[in-house]
Amino acid sequence: MGYFMVKTRAIVITGNGTNCEVEAAHACRLGGFDEAVIAHISDLLSGDLRLDDFHFLNLTGGFLDGDDLGSAKAQANRFKYARVDDLSEHLIDQLLRFIQAGKPILGVCNGFQLMVKMGLLPAFDGNLLQQVATLTFNDCGRFQDRWVYLKNNPASPSIFTRGIDRGIYLPIRHGEGKFVAASSEIMDRIEANNLAVLRYSGPDYEEPTMAFPENPNGSEHAIAAICDESGLLMGLMPHPEAFVHRTNHPRWTREELPEEGDGLILFRNAAEYVRSKLV
């Protein structure tokens, strides 16, 4: 790469119980970002780092604040009310500026919960801070670590899932992943605008399913991922950063698999989008 090119920069926020920052940053680099910075939230609150200096924000998996008030609730509150030390602004101001600049955000698992509970998804009419859906306890009542088949919705505006053929296979690892819309009108609007990006299905990626364990949490409409109308904000319960190489696959010792894992495409798409539109 020539020195004249601007570096594409991804940021992964960690701290207070985020756990997947290392593999998320690794996936960003494999996906094509020139740089992937793991930033402790204190680096942002002290003003040492600013979201404005990055192109792609990862809100990744973990147990923010131990899920103590319900998953991601305490972090949603922190994002809304925490002040940045040396700047006369709140963290939320930086986040809204990031979105208004047309930069992509990917929320995975705990990060998806955070986006939904803050109101960043589905964010109808650009209404970014109004919660209209939630992710709650799995119907089975337990945390589950298992792999799921995710049927892609090719009509969705998500920039992350472009080029996915029929679906992708990824692990879920959560206790609160059941997607629930606040009303049937909201669900209708999610469906009408093709904002439901991925759904739990059988291995053929044909029909969405409500049956455990293919649908591990009982999500309404078998929804595993949603995006906003711009397609730049997306959240999903499964972990794309956990399947970037074939040895991550639970059956890699018995199946002929490509070197690259199914989850990498989301990061590759984000990197391509940034390279083509933002730098």
Partner: peptide
């Protein structure tokens, strides 16, 4: 075992 996250950190090879 399914209640335990055995894949976080992204390096799981034999689960």
């Amino acid at each position: 075992v399914r209640r335990y996250d055995h894949e976080v950190q992204g390096g799981s090879v034999v689960k």
